[in-house]
Design a protein around this nucleic acid. Sequence first.
RNA 1: GGCGGCGUAGCCAAGUGGCUAAGGCAGAGGUCUGCAAAACCUUCAUCAUCGGUUCAAAUCCGAUCGCCGCCUCCA
Length: 491
Amino acid sequence: MIKLYNTLSAKKEEFVPVQPGRVSIYACGVTVYDHSHLGHARGAVVFDLIRRYFIRKGFAVTYVRNFTDVDDKIINRAKQEGITAEAVAKKYIDAYNEDMGRLGVARADIEPKATEHIPEMVAVIKGLIEKGHAYTVDGDVYFRVASFSGYGKLSKRNIEDLKAGARVEVDERKDDPLDFALWKASKPGEPAWSSPWGPGRPGWHIECSAMSFKHLGETFDIHGGGKDLIFPHHENEIAQSEAFSGRPFVNYWLHNGFVNINQEKMSKSLGNFFTIREILDKYDGEIVRLFLLSTHYRSPIDFSDGNLKDGRAGLDRFYTMKEGIAEYLKGKSATTAQPDKVVESVDRPLYEKILKLPKAFEEAMDDDFNTAFAIGLIYDLVRDVNKFLAEAGQKGEDAAQIILRAAQTSFDDVGRTLGLFLREPGEWFEEGRRAESRVTLSLEKIEEYIHLRNEARAGKDWAEADRVRQLLDAAGVEVFDRPGGTVWKPK
RNA sequence: GGCGGCGUAGCCAAGUGGCUAAGGCAGAGGUCUGCAAAACCUUCAUCAUCGGUUCAAAUCCGAUCGCCGCCUCCA
């Protein structure tokens, strides 16, 4: 049973889908007028995870994530760059997909664009006018907030408070300052679509209603986005959708917390943001993904080099263990021995714990996607497996194999859902850390020095051996003398 | 001003009524190592403050202090 925190009820609730065995998820994507920053990455990673988890639990998932490709900012950017709005959108959609790919975020099942759903939006707006929930002024169409009694139920505001606290400049043409645009008449030179109200373009909120209606139906399971979308975006979506359809729009509203810098929200307007690609220049995508999942999705998460480095250290530890398992199993054909016959009683608790990892993982995830706890379970078991690995030589070979293969299977199983811990250790150490390594020697040179050092060691010339170690160290290469020979890793 | 959230070890971070307050990073001591590294072992918190409810509170209630978010485009 999955429990999730629903912003609408402000409580954790048991998840009950509209249709048994199916889940429909709509997550607000980005407005494509610039490169995405780490805050956008968090939302994308969180909902990617939620989707993976529902799939793991056997649901047939339909995941929709939109691109807002028509908006003032895109139009401004197009003017600046002297290209069309369409070209701006395409450029940043491509960049977004590339960035997300590096974070292990899978493409959504449906990725609708606002500009490809104009007729659907027009149809909804027409319906709202017919039902008395919207009105036209000079080619604009506004939603009449006062006509929808449930307004404020998501963001827990009442209309009077909103009026009292209004900081918006009042547009005299609107019947009420709270009314919001469904359709905007376009100015000359701006992108425009024909409509019953003249040439224009959609307001921001209507696209999500129209596109979710089309792809998921009038009532669907989960709608997600960042906390900053609760008001007004999602509140307005509810108003226009429910006013139109006369039925509940969304059963569960999920909102992720922000990425902060020095405890302040990372945002374009504050200018305190890092783009995803800037961060990926310095840190491997898996580190960033781990960082984003190491805090519960609803809590704020503070971005800092130290936090990213913790993530790297954790992955080093994990992959060192994975390498240890692989080394032990290397060249050994799989045993056919029965676990209950060969696993010694002292190793039973470990074996049980390994087998139970997926279940423990699910218990954590069932509780509103507690990835922080789930990752803790993994590291806890890493320690146990390392301990066993250190003594593996003294264990019966069949038993050691059974335990280590089971560990690998369990780690892979939960790793697939998290989208973490899935690489080969060699790949992690050589490729994964290249982004931040400072290796200044060629592979040949490194091998040469290692050979030199080992000759010195063979002759017990420790001073020379240490000299070579320091030389390599200065070049960003760290050497380790393992039982199987000397290996090196980027520092 | 309205609404909402947060404050757990040097740092990050779970835990929201009851077993020894997960896990990670960093630190200290140890085992191992030519020296290292890795790994393992040991060690490191009365949970912002005050008051209340309760047999029992980090966890519920109230107050105080501090921080943040939304109310305007924003993941």
